[in-house]
Simulated scan of single mutants.
Amino acid sequence: MKRFLSFISLYLIFTAGFPQPSDRNARRLFSEGCDNISRNKYSEAIRNFSDALKISPGFLEAYENRGVAKYYLMDYKGAIEDYDKALGINPNDFNTYGRRGWAKYRLTDYNGAIADFTQAIRGADDKTQYYNIRGQAKYQLGDFEEAISDFDKVIITFSAGKYQKSMALYWRGMIKIELGRKESGCKDLKEASRLGLEQADLLIQVNCR
């Protein structure tokens, strides 16, 4: 059965309450790095952030954004190292826990990913994406009922966007079918399809006739 990951929202990070360094060159290099990320020039961005950190070793946002650039280059271990350093400076940045969780997920460290997503859920403004991916990590560990519980939280959340809700329905429906709850699972898949998730159509064709 084909499976799809939820979309990961990695974006340029500017942490409120943590002022940028006073050194102009460090700030300039950081700005250039952010510009390179926005242009998908991730290797150049990493060099910019690394040079900024040579000048200002405690530059929180440079660690965070260098981690983002490394993630996009599939250097997940390197991204985790940068997120570790960022969390050492600001242990209350819940979205950085979420980003580190994504990197751990990519490395199939599902227990580590679940721990980070749980931290992210505690404080992040948008909890739905973290419930979705935590549910997927639980699924990978064979913890199907706990995975369904996470998807339930997304589905019943009024503020959940259409995409996150459709992904939760897709995964919950797939798991229900694997558990032998075909009728309920197909209902979820059809609702995911109605919300515009094309991936659900294939599973409907295979399982719901």
Rank of each mutant, 00 (worst) to 15 (best):
D75W: 08
R99I: 04
A103M: 00
L53T: 10
R47P: 00
Y76D: 01
N111D: 11
A113C: 09
E64S: 13
D126W: 05
D82H: 12
T118Y: 05
S43K: 15
R27Y: 10
I8T: 10
S56I: 06
F14Y: 12
I133C: 04
Y63F: 15
A69K: 04
K41S: 09
D84I: 10
D125Q: 12
F49V: 03
V68S: 01
G135T: 04
N36L: 05
S38R: 15
D93A: 14
Y131N: 01
Y105W: 13
N92D: 07
G123R: 13
T108I: 11
Y130C: 06
F94Q: 02
D82N: 13
Y83M: 14
D126M: 08
G135K: 04
E81K: 15
T96R: 13
Y42Q: 14
F30S: 06
K54Y: 12
G98I: 07
Q20V: 11
D23T: 02
Y63V: 02
G88A: 12
R122T: 04
L53A: 09
T128M: 13
Y131T: 01
F30M: 04
A79G: 13
N132E: 03
G123Q: 02
D116I: 00
R47H: 10
K104Q: 05
Y83I: 12
G98L: 06
I37M: 10
D109V: 10
G135P: 02
S31Q: 14
A103S: 07
G58R: 11
S43V: 15
Y130P: 00
I37N: 06
F117H: 01
I114D: 00
E81I: 13
A62Q: 00
Y11V: 05
P19Q: 05
R66W: 09
T108A: 09
K70V: 02
G112L: 09
L10G: 04
K77M: 01
L87S: 03
L60E: 04
D116P: 01
I89W: 13
S50V: 09
L87N: 00
F14M: 12
S31N: 13
G58C: 08
A124M: 14
E44A: 13
G58N: 15
K77C: 02
A115S: 12
Q20R: 15
N95H: 12
G67P: 00
L60F: 10
F117M: 02
T118N: 07
N48H: 14
A124W: 12
D75M: 08
T108Y: 14
G135H: 09
P21R: 09
Y42P: 05
D125A: 06
A113T: 06
R47Y: 09
D23R: 03
V68K: 04
A124D: 11
Y110D: 08
N132Y: 09
Y72P: 07
L29N: 08
I89P: 03
A115C: 02
G67E: 00
E61C: 05
I8Q: 09
A26V: 12
F14E: 12
I55Y: 10
F94E: 05
Y71A: 06
A69T: 03
L53S: 02
Q20C: 10
L60W: 08
L107N: 01
Y130H: 05
N36V: 11
D93T: 14
D35I: 14
R24W: 13
F14G: 08
Y131A: 03
S38I: 05
K127G: 06
S43E: 13
A45D: 01
D84F: 08
